[in-house]
Design a protein around this nucleic acid. Sequence first.
DNA 1: GCACCCCTTTGATCTGCGTCAATGCCACAC
DNA 2: GTGTGGCATTGACGCAGATCAAAGGGGTGC
Lengths: 252, 252
Amino acid sequence: MHANVKQNVVPLITPGLKVACSQCNLRELCLPFGLDDHDMARLDNLIGGGRKVKRGHHLYRAGDAFESIFAVRSGFFKTDVLTEDGRDQVTGFQMAGEILGMDGISTEHHTCNAVALEDSEVCLIPFTELELLSSEIHSLQHHLHKVMSREIVRDHGVMMLLGTMRAEERLAAFLLNLSQRFAARGYSHSEFHLRMTREEIGSYLGLKLETVSRAFSRFQEEGLISVQQKHVRILDLPKLKSLLAPPDGRIA
Amino acid sequence: MHANVKQNVVPLITPGLKVACSQCNLRELCLPFGLDDHDMARLDNLIGGGRKVKRGHHLYRAGDAFESIFAVRSGFFKTDVLTEDGRDQVTGFQMAGEILGMDGISTEHHTCNAVALEDSEVCLIPFTELELLSSEIHSLQHHLHKVMSREIVRDHGVMMLLGTMRAEERLAAFLLNLSQRFAARGYSHSEFHLRMTREEIGSYLGLKLETVSRAFSRFQEEGLISVQQKHVRILDLPKLKSLLAPPDGRIA
DNA sequence: GCACCCCTTTGATCTGCGTCAATGCCACAC
DNA sequence: GTGTGGCATTGACGCAGATCAAAGGGGTGC
């Protein structure tokens, strides 16, 4: 098992897994957003092929030299940071069309781990070459900046969640966020399969796994959702949304 | 008071406050890092002058159209997000040499508020022009990306803090972080003046102001620091650092 | 320089979530 | 198909930090 994981650290390009943004149904969500055919072809040319990552394996690890960012083609990832003193914090879950690895730009080394939560495929985007191309294609440059900025804004949202919300609010926000992202990819917004464990959800939300489990059960008791293990169905979206209002319901 | 604040929303360029990276003792911390004289002059040329922001006034507000990022020349800022339901989360404190406003790139509008915690000065860096110049100066482009990436990494650190640490650990981490940043600017690492209130610290750390106050008192009782209102002196740095180890002290 | 108000401190009490524990189930590997 | 171990659920209890309350002090604005 450990040997397998180790093996996977090497950025193996899967032979024959040629990728092309122009053919990809995620292009409107992903990096090539807004590019014309010509420029998209140039981006295609740069992308270093695809790479498969099996469930449980690392796409990269904290400390790895930074060379590429990655676009999720299919599957599901988590990123987490762990400190020398043993703390572990899940910093995000990434699905198709989302970009991974931008944490590594600042120090030339990745600062978090990226792990596939199901068998997945990513596109490898060599960063030096991306910078080169983006200095020639203005809309690509600007979109890259937007993607990075969006990550910053997302992180602020998580800080808000961790800093101000109670357990059930956090879980509600989490489910609504997932629902919306699945919907944006053409999947059902009301019924989906969780790829992560209660513990991983808990780590992301700053809660213990038991608290997550209890909140799920409570939501089910109240008819907001039905949940069975990893299968979730949202039954009462408005009521779930209403949970995000603070206790005193003030209209600031 | 409110009129003053409103007034300040307009990006008033202070006449005669000409700025020059080449003359600035923060250039090693700030955007021009790594540029040669020629390129730094080009960056100087782009920077739209300075702007003074009085204590308590906004540099920008959530919802404002995004046009520039800002480099803090002097003073101290906080950024915070507030949701329609009345939650308020401080997302960061910025001091000289640090960059503000990158949250606005993604939607063309700022998504948080930036407020001066003391009379401050910033450099205005028009973003469209910065992108243009950075497509010509590779090292500038790369450094911009590093600055944005560093912000992402910093946010991950805050998520870790909010998600896994107990109150006293959070405050210790906060003080150590301030100490280090002051030191990097040539100020004492062991004695400084807090620009923010207990409530703002609490918001940043996901705690109530009373808890922050109690943690300060406890640190003082234990001889780790001396604190009187906003004046803090670190008396036992190693012991303060040792607080960051988790309760079970495991060496992962 | 003065007054006022916000900030801070400290105490008492409450509670949401963590912790500890035990049981049960499902998915995966073989 | 079957066995097994990780994952999930649920209960009992304790505690860290929130909440409520009150008083004092110092910095800020006029």
